[in-house]
């Protein structure tokens, strides 16, 4: 059984088909990128996979449970227990320190544990910045706190929305390295990105266009290292 399976998903707003018969599977431990231009349905798909929205039609099976049929309260519980979220704009609580922001996820999940939160910050290389407020951290550091917060409860899936969208090259590299580390530890990653260089390091890249699954690029040579051949073809197509 796949960890995540979307079966003929539709999301319709009036005349607009934000998602139009999309089906896909994500296996446990897989690293999948979702790419596509603006308005292609990436955000809608993220919201549905992240249990923040429901499809108009179709089934979304997460660990065998159809989340499309769950109540809002159950969706909150699923989000809390199974999904770690990483945002483009970090979204840290600005009056809580780095370690408190990580503990916030623990607080809603089970029991806050400062030692464990410190270890998570250590994993993202921010142990020495634990007592700093978000305003005292650089963009890259804030994103790493966001990563630490996402992984603190050992979620089934880490869902990242443009995780490098607001970062410079050096910080982008740090975050991608962190994804490698998480993937090697067996975490399932779904990364939505505009950046082909971030997308191409995944095992698979799904390309959305006008709400449909336009293309699936499998990185046959995935070893945890970056391979560009398949993405080069994609880039050429995009520029044409």
């Amino acid at each position: 059984m796949s960890l995540l399976e979307l079966k003929h998903i539709y999301k319709i707003y009036g005349e607009l088909h934000a998602l139009d018969d999309v089906s896909l599977k994500v296996e446990k431990g897989e690293w999948v990128s979702i790419m596509g231009p603006s308005g292609s349905g990436k955000s809608t798909m993220m919201n549905i996979i992240g249990c923040m929205d429901k499809p108009t039609k179709g089934e979304v099976l997460l660990d065998g449970v159809d989340i499309a049929k769950e109540s809002a309260r159950n969706l909150t519980a699923i989000r809390r227990d199974k999904i770690g979220l990483i945002f483009q704009q970090f979204h840290l609580v600005n009056y809580l320190t780095a370690v408190e922001n990580v503990m916030l996820a623990q607080y809603y999940h089970s029991m806050p544990d400062e030692k464990e939160a410190m270890e998570a910050l250590d994993r993202v290389g921010l142990a020495d910045r634990a007592k700093h407020l978000p305003s005292q951290l650089s963009g890259g550091e804030q994103q790493r706190v966001c990563v630490a917060r996402a992984l603190i409860n050992y979620p089934e899936i880490i869902l990242a929305d443009e995780p490098t969208g607001n970062l410079d090259e050096a910080n982008e590299e740090i975050v991608v390295d962190l994804f490698h580390k998480l993937h090697n530890e067996g975490t399932t990653l779904i990364v939505v990105t505009h950046d082909p260089e971030v997308a191409e390091v995944a095992q698979r890249t799904l390309v959305l266009r006008s709400g449909k699954l336009h293309k699936e690029i499998v990185n046959q040579n995935f070893t945890g290292k970056i391979h560009f051949e398949d993405m080069d073809t994609f880039r050429k197509e995009e520029t044409q």
Binding site: G50, T76, A77, R79, R149
Partner: peptide, 16 residues
């Protein structure tokens, strides 16, 4: 509102 949205996104119930 954004902070509330974030809290809900990371699993806060309405009651919390």
């Amino acid at each position: 509102r954004k902070e509330i949205g974030l809290r809900k996104a990371i699993g806060a119930s309405d009651r919390s």
